[in-house]
């Protein structure tokens, strides 16, 4: 249970970071999210929830044997790194 949610959270955070950067660099993607989900932020939220749910289900079946503490530390590192990527990206984009 713990491993499944931690691994899914890692994938979800990487997805949120990737779609945030991609949608800002490629406006048709942002428009697509806005058209389908009424707002790009709602689109990112709903697709993130779907990705988390799908991968949690998948990892509950696969039952990865990795130590939970290692995965939790990895999630912590990914969260910090993803925050820095997003902050750096919008700082760079603002100065363009």
């Amino acid at each position: 249970m713990i491993n499944a949610t931690v691994l899914s959270a890692i994938i979800t955070i990487i997805y949120i970071t990737a779609i945030t950067v991609a949608a800002d660099l490629y406006p048709p993607l942002k428009e697509f999210l806005a058209n389908v989900f009424s707002h790009h932020w709602i689109g990112k939220s709903i697709t993130a929830i779907l990705i988390f749910a799908i991968f949690t289900g998948l990892f509950l079946v696969l039952k990865p044997k990795t130590k939970p503490s290692f995965l939790l530390n990895l999630l912590t590192a990914v969260s910090i790194l993803a925050t820095l990527v997003i902050l750096t990206f919008f700082t760079w984009e603002s100065s363009r």
Binding site: T12, I13, T17, S45, L75, T83, I86, F90
Partner: peptide, 16 residues
């Protein structure tokens, strides 16, 4: 822009 996107991480970290 940063706030609205890193805010999306928090519920998943809370779920874990």
């Amino acid at each position: 822009e940063t706030k609205e996107h890193i805010f999306l991480f928090l519920p998943f970290l809370g779920l874990v």
